[in-house]
Nucleic acid binder design. Sequence first.
RNA 1: GUGGAUGUAGCUCAGCUGGUUAGAGUACCAGAUUGUGGCUCUGGGGGUCGUGGGUUCAAAUCCCAUCAUCCACCCCA
Length: 430
Amino acid sequence: MLTTRPRGTNDILPGEVEKWHYIESVIRRLCFEYGYSEIRTPVFEHTELFLRGVGDTTDVVKKEMYVFTDRGGRSVTLRPENTAPVVRAYLENKLYAGPQPVKLYYLGPMFRYDRPQAGRFRQFHQFGVEVLGSDDPAVDAEVIAMAMDFYARLGLKGLELHVNSVGCPVCRPLMIRRLREYFLPQFERLCKNCKDRLEKNPLRILDCKEERCRETGENAPVVFETLCESCFKHFESVERHLDLLEIDYMVNPRLVRGLDYYTHTAFEIMAEDVGAQGSIGGGGRYNGLIETCGGSPTPGIGYALGLERIILAMESQGITVPGINKPLVFVVTAGEGSNGEAYKILFRLRSAGISADKDYLGRSLKAQMKFAGRAGARYALIIGEEELKKGLVLVRDMTRGEQEEVPAGEAAGYLVRKIGNCEGGKRIND
RNA sequence: GUGGAUGUAGCUCAGCUGGUUAGAGUACCAGAUUGUGGCUCUGGGGGUCGUGGGUUCAAAUCCCAUCAUCCACCCCA
């Protein structure tokens, strides 16, 4: 137990963490270009925020939250998602008083007590954005376009973008009533889950994977028949803007999202190669959420992406990541007498901006060379007793297998001139 | 939360119907005329056979429980 991580959590190790660094750098660049600023909120919040914000009938809140009572008797919860916390921060810090809309992004761990599976963990990481203070359909399209741009920058292919409108407080009750009226006479044909859904959230019946339920729902009223005038116009406008950007999408009237706060636009991105957990991102508009959280009526929209699933998809598509960190220079000692000088030169290299390392296990010259090769060093700086007497060191090019003598005091300068400042074996600004 | 599969060295796996010190490849460490890597050869370290019970003269091998991983449901990122 002492050496076992908690279920559904992961250690991100060297060799793996470079993928995260790369994805994070793509995210920060993307957000910079789209005009989104980072917001960092706590990993835990008052439980009440999620009960009210996400909705206390949702599965996420009912059975997947990590809820604790702290030492002061307060109920707190590890965040299962970050839209409600961002809205809370928007209100608490009075961001509504500044220029609108407010465009924010976040990146960090979320927690859901769920049975782990491929692409599903108890602690997982999301990148997400939120736009608060505008109900322009062009923003909906921007947010969707931004998500698609992100996947494209990573090189992901074969994704499906599903878009739908789930209505608003004006037309959704009508939609639900019509669906209940349709399904009630056919109650016995529905699967066990859908019998429950009819009561809780009949929209979800349309989303059921059971053959019988699909057939039963074939002639069910379509959302677009029941959308109110303004919802319909909004959706049409979102479509027009997506068309302007030439984004491929499919209207999926069966798309329903599991969080209560969604209104109007809802969307989801599916990948084929992430196992059963095919969704690698999704989001939608939540024009009622800010008011629910105690603010004045303010529109909002956002999305979230699961980074573990993004990585899974990248791996199964064979996408590799640049810039694995390798030492550029490995300092090798030959003879006891060179240890001190080698140590000094090592640090001089580092001060000069060169990534350098040495052996710390008292290995033989031969073993040090072997280690340097394995570590992927491009140069071995061999500090030999004999040469040192003449004030020289050897610079060996590991890929070419050639070496030359250089004055010891100039070794760092020599290497800097030869390769410049470096990162991951490459020049910066290359 | 429900159903199913799996669990042997760091990694990938072998180990027949239970029978003496549990193996291979790879990785790691060290050597192969004592100052030079990537190939080859030799040797070495490393395994509570997921964990805990039980059956048996005897269990990695059978039974039960538990934990973990994977798959499906559910849900979602």
